[in-house]
Design a protein around this nucleic acid. Structure first.
Length: 648
DNA sequence: CTAGGGTTAG
């Protein structure tokens, strides 16, 4: 052990006594415990040579013989720190290694390269590698695979990656599939797709990982057809192959495909893992696929995913929220042992979407008490909550606090929320002013919010102002024109309604037909389209509506035909209203679902005022809970009233 | 001592 001390390049520390003396000198003492694998890289910057020496001395003092268990000792860690310090420290590190009885030096360095390559600063692995090359330490397949991994994770490391590729050839490792896979991955993640693909195509003995790497690349860039092509072509698929595809479909807004593939995966008998669960739950959230979501939840419980994995829980929360089950979401949230800012934000936003703004604000207080720092998304949820409750001052306070107290720079979403808040509350001029003073360029969401406010408050000028910008920003979206013509119709300006219709025609736009979906207990989705449904049981549904209408009339229901923009007589307008998709879907649900089960409906557009009024009454007359997922939010109809409190 | 997949806003 004393010889270890003697090789120190710094200062001779020859006894335990001296080691102690070093500790009590001016240099602040360091703790060996602070040398965690992942902090090695930063530690290298912190430790001065004398601190390193001090640390070494402490190790000697601990009395553990370096030969006892080299990997259990912090000695290699000390060495790793030295290795990234000055060149002299590097040779010191090498000599430190010389103390242990590890057969090959390469193996030891490999383990550090491994650690560094997956650390937050993979460039440190590259630095260490260049030291190793310079010092003439031999590289093996492991060395190169770690270096390539580090290259994949380091921007601008493509040239070095290519050099390592050359080394792979030079050292005769070209038939090592493992190494070739890391190479393909390196090229793909560093943006040299043609090199990646070229290599992929010439690897004769591709394994499942080779395919997965390439497939994952295409799912990341959104080239889902190519990804699918490879997926269909590959000889055998692992969980990760399926998961990559499912996640890709989800990310590129093809949740139907994601769910379809998940079901195929089930039929193929492949066990989903945590990541699969997250991916398919996200797709369920997008689709409002509650039944499948619930089934996946059960599975996640059985596998203890819910207990052990925060991301699984966060996605479960999101799924339940987007399927209209806030209570279920809240239950998952409450049962979580550990929560991240994502969990809190999702739940805060979820309560807001369901008209439970008070709960959002309460949760925010609890979040702060728990010492959790909010982020931008948290504030979107809070502003949303204020907006839906009409809490103007509260919302303004949050908006200010966000920057002043939390240092969060508002993004376009926050400005959108503020415009929504202001204009919904009737402060259209102030909203307009707010847009003018925004430091970022308003997008269609922002102007859309102003347009929405203009409709609620019947302000024609503001509506026209908003549409001027919207036709520029989002010319193909027919929804805005429809809202504008609504505003005109409300004011009885039929010639302007016709003008808007001509505008739409000139641009080749047609009003998107409204549709609603409802799923019974068997995971089968039934779709109803306004006016002309081709559902096989549509006649039955029409008769069911006529019967229900009689009951509603007895309770004082009067059709509100103002939402019908066509020029026709009142009776005709009523007929149009009675074929609105959400009404048909509700009737279908009432006819086919057990009493007491809530009816859940998803709609592509916003609920019209007549359907809103009708659904409130239906919930009372039939004593049913009806949950409708709108384009923007949820309406929960119960005992004759709606969770949105008619403020939407 | 080896590579590949994931969550919150709209």
């Amino acid at each position: 052990m004393t010889c270890a001390v003697a090789v120190s390049p710094f200062q001779v520390v020859s006894s335990r006594k001296n080691a102690t003396a070093t500790q009590s000198s001016k240099e602040p003492p360091i703790s060996t415990a602070s040398l965690h694998a992942t902090t090695i890289a930063t530690a290298a910057d912190f430790f001065t040579p004398s601190q390193l020496q001090q640390l070494h001395a402490r190790l000697i003092k601990s009395g553990l013989p370096p030969s006892s268990s080299a990997s259990a000792l912090p000695l290699p860690r000390v060495a790793a720190v030295c290795a990234l310090s000055s060149p002299s420290a590097f040779s010191y590190a090498r000599r430190l290694f010389g103390l242990s009885d590890v057969a090959s030096e390469t193996v030891l360095w490999n383990s550090h390269l491994n650690t560094l390559s997956s650390s937050p600063s993979p460039a440190d692995a590259l630095a260490l590698f260049s030291r190793l090359r310079f010092a003439g330490v031999a590289s093996d397949v492991f060395t190169l695979s770690f270096v390539l991994k580090a290259c994949s994770r380091t921007p601008a490391a493509l040239p070095l990656g290519r050099a390592v590729h050359a080394l792979v050839e030079k050292l005769g490792f070209r038939s090592d599939v493992f190494l070739l896979n890391t190479l393909v991955h390196m090229y793909a993640s560093r943006g040299d797709i043609s090199a990646a693909r070229l290599l992929f195509d010439v690897i004769p003995a591709k394994d499942v990982v080779t395919w997965n790497i390439m497939i994952t690349h295409y799912t990341k860039t959104g080239e889902m057809e190519i990804a699918r092509h490879l997926f269909d072509l590959m000889p055998e698929r692992s969980v990760r192959s399926w998961t990559a595809m499912i996640a890709g479909y989800g990310q590129w807004k093809k949740p139907r495909e994601a769910v379809r593939l998940f079901r195929e995966m089930e039929s193929a008998g492949v066990q989903p893992n945590e990541v699969t669960v997250v991916a398919v739950l996200a797709a369920c959230a997008d689709l409002g696929e509650l039944d499948l979501g619930k089934r996946v939840h059960e599975f996640a419980k059985r596998c203890s995913f819910q207990k052990n994995n925060v991301r699984v829980c966060n996605t479960l929360i999101d799924m339940y929220i987007n399927c209209g089950c806030v209570e279920k979401a809240r239950q998952v949230f409450d049962e979580m042992a550990e929560r991240t800012v994502v969990s809190w934000s999702a739940m805060i936003g979820g309560h807001a979407m369901h008209g439970q703004g008070e709960e959002s604000l309460k949760l925010f207080s609890r979040m702060r008490e728990a010492g959790m720092e909010p982020n931008g998304v948290t504030f979107v949820g809070l502003l949303h909550a204020c907006s839906h409750m009409g809490l103007l001052e509260e919302g303004k306070r949050f908006f200010r606090s966000m920057t002043e107290d939390y240092g969060i720079v508002p993004e376009i979403e926050h400005y959108g929320c503020m415009v929504d808040l202001l204009s919904r509350a009737g402060f259209l001029e102030e909203a307009r002013e707010f847009i003018r003073e925004m430091p970022v360029k308003a997008n269609s969401v922002v102007w859309g919010a102003l347009l929405g406010g203009a409709k609620v408050h019947k302000n024609i000028n503001m509506g026209e102002e908003a549409i001027r910008h919207l036709v520029e920003l989002d010319p193909l979206n027919d929804g805005y024109y429809v809202v504008l013509s609504n505003i005109y119709a409300d004011a009885g300006r039929w010639e302007d309604v016709a003008k808007v219709r001509r505008m739409m025609k000139d641009r080749g736009l047609k009003k998107t037909p409204g549709w609603s979906t409802i799923s019974l207990d068997d995971e089968v989705v039934h779709e109803f389209v306004a006016g002309e449904s081709d559902h096989p049981r549509i006649e039955e549904v029409y008769r069911g509506w006529d019967e229900l209408l009689e009951k509603l009339r007895c309770r004082g229901y009067v059709p509100d035909t103002s939402a019908v923009l066509l020029d026709m007589d009142e009776k005709e307008k009523e007929k149009v209203l009675y074929r609105h998709s959400e009404k048909l879907a509700v009737v279908f649900g009432l006819m086919n679902m057990r009493a007491g089960r809530p009816i859940r409906i998803m709609k592509n557009l916003r609920v019209c005022s007549d359907c809103h009024a009708a659904l409130k009454l239906i919930s009372e007359v039939t004593d049913r809970e009806i949950v409708v997922r709108d384009r923007n939010r949820f309406h929960c109809f119960k005992h004759g009233s709606c969770s949105c409190r008619d403020y939407w």
